[in-house]
Write a protein that binds this DNA or RNA. Structure first.
Length: 477
RNA sequence: GCCCCGUUCGUCUAGUGGCCUAGGACUCCGGAUUUUCAUUCCGGCAACAGGAGUUCAAUUCUCCUACGGGGUGCCA
């Protein structure tokens, strides 16, 4: 059990589940499932100023909705809890103290103003390597006295002044930094809460995390983390730094350039199957040409070896294509169920399941999302409104002739009988003297509100004879 | 500024020294099927950032430059 693979997704509850986070969670999930390991959810809520009410619930809900179930964490528990960092502060305090005792950390009394001033000076001088370590040399006894006197302070990590630090990242290989470019990171804030750096090291060790899978933005703080592992005498985890997901302009994916929250995509009617499949391909690719995978297939195919190093642009066009693909290939019953809330939101009745199936069965080939599906399906429930150009078309004699004939014939037509419908169409050809577009366009316009769309027979079957009769009669002058 | 990481079609990517006249997918453009639209199928456009090396041979290895991104917070 000691060598079990354990990975964790450790978001901070600042509001919603970012798709970058979703991908990290996905990779965590895939690796854990593939290796029969454990997937842990840990909430990194150490920044009280950024805490957002309901964010944790949101996060869990999104994870559940896309089907990334975790083995340990909030709501499901586990033997390594608590899984909220805000409930583990004593632990961090203890380890911070240990670091201070070992001479690997020290109290710092610099104020925010002091630091601001320092940064300005560094900027002016063109240097700027972060905190300059001015509190390193305060006599421990004096520091103790100032702390006892209640002076606000933080605990900073005392990183080496010189030399090189090397670590191996699973996707990037050897990564090296010079210690003099790494500054003394704050470990415990003046409010007593830890920063990410201390908390993640302590927790990953205590939760026996074997692989730290996270975004590339963490690469440059990894030396600090490694240093702590060494000071504590702990075995560091394997680091797996993922390439960033980017905006179309290649900057880090952000809210300003469109949706970035998983719940936004879900709300717009993207299917979990499509979302997961698409996002899996942002930074990972199977060896062949394959692009379509179910979650289980991803589990089987996934490997760190095939994670790419360069950032990946989030291409909405491709997501749309993939979502449409799943809309039309997944089981119809499933799509109907997924579509229900969207139909309800659009104010459409959902009581006739048979009719819903018929509608969705062909609508789904013409839209990209469940939301579009509901929007597109409105025409089957409410009499279509024609625009100016189409209204003119509908008042012309040729069209009127057809409308009148059908309004008269439909009451005696069996709308579920394709042969009967075809016979009527044939008869219309004779009676009205039209065929091809001249025949079908008016028919479809009356039933569907557009020249282009489904077959007439399908239309009739869905809306039924009463509504069909109403639509033809309604267009009569 | 400094540090780190990266760089194949517009985008996601295959490619680990010869199989590459660089493959697939999305988008776009044609064509076929369909009464129309959509679907489906077929076809087309389109890329190895640049320069030096190493080698009989570089998309693949090395170095430099350029460009992009990330970091440089008592945010994660």
């Amino acid at each position: 059990m000691k060598n079990q693979i354990r990975v964790r997704f450790a978001p901070s509850p600042t509001g919603y589940l970012h798709v970058g986070g979703l991908r990290t969670a996905l990779y965590d999930y895939l690796y854990a499932r593939k290796t029969n390991g454990k997937f842990i959810l840990r909430i990194e809520d150490t920044d009280r100023t950024r805490y957002v009410e309901g964010a944790v619930e949101n996060l869990i809900k999104s994870l559940n909705e896309v089907g990334l179930d975790y083995d340990e964490g909030p709501e499901v528990g586990g033997e390594f809890g608590p899984y909220f960092q805000s409930e583990r502060t004593e632990l961090y305090q203890r380890y911070a103290r240990e670091l201070v005792e070992k001479g690997a950390a020290y109290p710092c009394f610099c104020t925010t103003e002091d630091l601001e001033k320092m940064r300005e000076e560094q900027k002016a001088a063109g240097t700027g390597i972060g905190y300059d370590g001015r509190c390193r040399h305060i006599d421990p006894a004096e520091a103790q006295r100032r702390i006892a006197a209640g002076e606000p302070h933080v605990i900073r990590l005392k990183v080496p002044m010189k030399g090189e630090v090397v670590f191996y990242d699973v996707v990037r290989g050897r990564v090296a930094f010079q210690w003099d470019t790494v500054d003394d990171q704050v470990l415990i804030k003046s409010d007593g809460y830890p920063t990410y750096h201390l908390a993640n090291v302590v927790d990953d060790h205590h939760m026996e995390v074997s692989h730290v899978i996270r975004g590339e933005e963490w690469l440059s703080s990894t030396p600090k983390h490694l240093f702590m592992y060494q000071q504590f005498g702990w075995k560091p985890p394997k680091w797996v730094h993922l390439p960033l997901i980017l905006n179309p302009d290649r900057s880090k994916l952000s809210k300003r350039q469109g949706d970035v929250a998983t719940e936004d995509f879900l709300r717009k009617g993207y299917l979990p199957e499509a979302l997961l499949n698409f996002i899996a391909l942002l930074g990972w690719h199977d060896s062949g040409d394959r692009e379509l995978f179910t979650l289980d297939e991803l589990v089987r195919a996934f490997s760190f070896k095939r994670i790419s190093k360069a950032g990946a642009v989030f291409d909405l066009e491709k997501l749309n294509w993939m979502n449409q693909h799943y809309m039309k290939t997944l089981d119809l019953g499933y799509i109907v169920i997924k579509a229900l809330p969207f139909f309800q939101d659009a104010g459409l009745p959902v009581d006739d399941m048979e009719q819903l199936r018929l509608i969705i069965d062909f609508s789904r080939e013409r839209v990209h999302t469940l939301q579009e599906l509901a929007e597109f399906s409105k025409v089957f429930f409410t009499t279509p409104i024609l625009d100016a150009e189409k209204s003119v078309f509908a008042t012309q004699d040729a069209a009127q002739k057809i409308f009148a004939f059908w309004a008269e014939q439909i009451p005696s037509l069996d709308c579920n009988d394709d042969a009967a419908i075809n016979a009527l169409i044939k008869e219309t050809t004779k009676v009205c003297g039209v065929k091809g577009k001249e025949l079908y366009f008016p028919l479809r316009l009356a039933l569907f509100g557009d020249y282009h769309g489904p077959e007439v027979a399908a239309l009739l079957r869905i809306i039924g004879k009463e509504e069909a009769q109403k639509r033809f009669a309604g267009l009569l002058l």
